[in-house]
């Protein structure tokens, strides 16, 4: 990627953010609500992409990190009534710790086995939530007394701001020397190791960063919804959608992941009139993209740029 293109992408992104931030002036509260969720979801997808696209590790369990962040924040608020902001910080911290605990053993194994370990982590969390129903609300879900605000404009700007900052940090990290080491170790760990880089340390760092943003975003989402449930922040189906969003938007692009997430949520809404077939259609479109444009939206756009 040439620096010219990088700057071009930068200007496009800047333009998109500026346009997005003026949306509350002319679209309805409902659309804003939709995009608010899409932005949080975008952060999930970007965090996942950092781990997969750059460190080459397939994390099947993004919802383990999201769920730990979300439930920690929710439980602390419901049990001790601390202010949402403290709860959100605690949620993110818990996700980082969880990420660390998961990453240490998981990184010992390679390929599909890493993915499986992360998958099992999600299943364990799910069982935990159900078994300790008194604390977590079980399958019914946890009702959280406080929300950040019920003003849709404020919520929208918080989400947009959060996504923009996360995107800048994650993208910057991916382009930095650390990101390059990660990419190298993802493609050929042995050679990267031979060059004197501490692979495990780099990957661990990537895992922790990914965990931080996933947990933070999960906690914010909980205080937006006013409820945390397995179906919204832990279920494997949610994790699958994070992965689909990242693949759809374009792997190794970070920003594409956010694009994919916004597309999935908005498309699902557009198809609402088709009722029961909406999910079918979204899946079919996603499958076609996977089959015919494996680079994803941003991947396809980038390669066209490169050719010109």
């Amino acid at each position: 990627m040439g620096s010219f293109f990088k700057s071009r992408l930068f200007f496009i992104s800047l333009g998109a953010v500026i346009i997005a931030s003026t949306l509350p002036l002319y679209v309805s509260g409902y659309v804003l609500g939709l995009l608010t969720v899409a932005y949080y979801f975008g952060v999930f997808a970007m965090s996942w992409d950092l781990l997969f696209g750059f460190a080459g590790e397939v994390n099947f369990g993004p919802t383990f990190l999201i769920g730990v962040g979300a439930y920690t924040a929710g439980i602390v608020n419901a049990q001790y009534g601390l202010s949402p902001y403290i709860c959100i910080v605690l949620g993110a911290a818990a996700a980082v710790i969880a990420g660390f605990v998961l990453a240490l053993p998981a990184l010992r194994v390679r390929g599909p086995y890493f993915g499986l370990t992360t998958l099992v982590a999600v299943l364990m969390l799910q069982n935990f939530v159900v078994v300790f129903a008194d604390l977590t609300g079980g399958e019914i879900g946890l009702t959280i007394p406080d929300v950040i605000t019920i003003d849709s404009h404020a919520n929208y700007w918080i989400a947009l701001g959060f996504m923009t900052i996360s995107a800048a940090i994650l993208y910057g990290l991916a382009q930095s020397p650390v990101g390059l080491v990660l990419q190298a170790s993802g493609q050929d760990a042995v050679q990267a190791g031979a060059l004197g880089f501490n692979i495990v340390k780099h990957k661990l760092a990537a895992f922790v960063v990914s965990a931080f943003f996933s947990g933070l975003s999960g906690a914010l989402l909980v205080f937006y919804f006013g409820t945390a449930s397995v179906g919204t922040v832990v279920d494997i189906a949610v994790g699958v959608n994070v992965i689909v969003a990242a693949v759809l938007g374009g792997r190794r692009t970070v920003l594409g992941a956010a694009l994919g997430a916004i597309f999935l949520i908005v498309a699902g809404e557009f198809l609402r009139p088709t009722g029961e077939l909406a999910t079918f259609i979204v899946s079919a479109v996603a499958l076609l993209v996977v089959l015919f444009f494996p680079g994803g939206f941003l991947g396809a756009a980038l390669s066209r740029e490169a050719r010109q």
Partner: peptide, 24 residues
């Protein structure tokens, strides 16, 4: 039998319990 419930497939949809106030 792990409760994967892929049925919510686009749980994006599931996630998007959008909160929109203000317009009555």
């Amino acid at each position: 039998s792990l409760k994967t419930a892929l049925h919510a497939s686009t749980s994006l949809i599931a996630l998007a319990g959008a909160v929109a106030l203000g317009l009555f």
